[in-house]
Design a protein around this nucleic acid. Structure first.
Lengths: 184, 184, 184, 184
DNA sequence: AATGAATGAGCTTTCATTCAT
DNA sequence: AATGAATGAAAGCTCATTCAT
């Protein structure tokens, strides 16, 4: 976890993973520091407001990563359904790579965060950014603006719920079954 | 929150609400006791293993409540789609009643609990109980066993994901839009 | 320091002494607890707002102690000057008993406290209570209300400044010299 | 606070003000650096022993400033009482200029400093230097050596105590009332 | 069953300082 | 002389739990 990365990036990536695995309140700063191999005082140099700032940076990092997954999945597609299918399979792979107890990266960083309203607001924005990325791909693939947005929302709803069920079952199959459920 | 209820029930209902709002690790025992109006030492008479026992009782209580919602929604229905629609509307009402920042009762109690595997297992069971309740209603309404189970799963996937989006948007509209998304 | 006293009283008296010796910010909670022989968690049972509450209680305790000194000094007196003289000598004894580096109990607890305005306000009140106690004795000894108040203020001004000089000199002589300076 | 001053002087004046306002232990190096607009690493070029050196420099600077106030007040005077009166009024102006919560500059730098005995000793010296300055003025104005020293001590005692009461009252009036209290 | 004081491990954060550039 | 990242000891505080009454 400490190849080439800057101190700041080590903290962000480790934190993103731990928050996803054990939740914001369930993750101790000490654990983040230990796994990142960073001494205690350094955190507050890079993140003056401590754990809360770290959560914000981790959320940002996760959202950017997911937007990349969306784009990787949809770019080669020639119709929305194909892109959505690839997206679900890529998420299933993500699920299998991580400890299957991990919560969905989106949910984890959006909802189990600091109590303050600021974090909540930023989280809602990140969520919208993700929907926007999918909707943009829909438009590129020929859907009307409204239809693209609707399709994007439905896909993300299913993916979020699918991750939840996958987690309960400890199996990524549910994620792979989503296209069939949505598009017949 | 303290009319007529026994000390034990006060603790369970307050804990269920707080765990839903702030997560298991984000909720302090002291806060539960204060809001339940119960003195410090009392908790361990009713829940010898403390917070962990309380979480299990709260999960149980929540699951039972949700099964009741499923049954109230489907009992008057004559086809699955109607029952599912009523169920979504009932959940939207639940969403509106609670602080809109509350997580879905199902997700909250299934995933953000004590760290031990025992709780995780019990939680998965509760989730299955809920799917089973919906599937049973599907069979009652004429679906084959497999089809009923599939319909139940799809509905719960959508509802879980819908709650997530509703939370990000702070609006229950998404929950009400689910039947249209699933059944055209 | 732990004869018969309740946990709360042990904390208050130890804190009052340490704050006087090393200032509020210079005194660590750990040191208070160690000297009081009280475990960490207990402090927050008795003083929910921690160090700040403890400072308030210590200030209160100190003010009450000083009012007692005033009354002990003036009660047997038949004129103000005699009472004031006894008061100065009693303070000189207090000075000699304590580590001579200790700041004046009044100043220490009134001014080097928590940053919040609440503490400052309470401190000003305590100071006035002390002036009031001296003024009341002045009236009892035949002074007009205004003259009594003026005499009380002048005495306390001299005593405060005298303690400062005594501290710089590490000798209580200055305190004993005050009556001569004020009353010729 | 940052016009033309050298980095070193910025640090000293800002530190003197902060130590006066919040005490030595209540003032963080980070706050000094931020208010002086000086980067973190710079402090140790100018003050190799860090905070302790800075406190000594600030004490020195304050003492020199006060000696200047004494001289400005007494130089035009033709009798001790007039000089003392001007001195008290100048201090009242100082009080009004600063946040009225500031402690007396003399007390602040003499008593709430680093824990070591070295600082305490230097501080006592600074105090004596101030008394000496007043006593010298007394001799210049015709007092015998002993009487001058006595008058200087009494004046400083009253001024120290007066500042304390002024602080509690948040009003500089007490300082202005001192000549009347001392000299009738 | 009920109570509230006691407990100490562990939490997040702040501190003055050092170091490499 | 100047800079800002690095450092870990120590700070104040919260935690779930236990105990004596």
């Amino acid at each position: 976890m400490d190849e080439g990365l800057s101190t700041r990036d080590k903290l962000v990536t480790v934190a993103a993973r731990l928050f996803r695995q054990k939740g914001y309140h369930g993750t101790g700063i000490a654990e983040v520091l230990a796994q990142a191999g960073v001494p205690k005082g350094s955190l507050y140099h890079h993140f003056p407001n401590g754990k809360e700032d770290l959560a914000q940076a981790a959320a940002e990092w996760t959202a950017a990563m997911l937007v990349r997954v969306v784009e990787d999945a949809f770019t080669p597609a020639v119709e929305f359904r194909a892109g959505a299918t690839t997206f679900c399979h890529k998420l299933a792979k993500l699920f299998d790579l991580s400890d299957s107890a991990d919560s969905c990266p989106i949910q984890a960083l959006i909802f189990d965060g600091p109590d303050g309203a600021a974090f909540r607001a930023q989280a809602a924005t990140l969520f919208d950014r993700l929907i926007g990325a999918v909707a943009r791909q829909g438009e590129r693939l020929g859907l009307e603006a409204d239809a693209a947005r609707e399709a994007a929302e439905t896909l993300l709803i299913a993916v979020e719920g699918g991750w939840t069920l996958a987690r309960a079952r400890r199996s990524s199959d549910v994620l792979r079954s989503i296209p069939a459920r949505l598009y017949g």
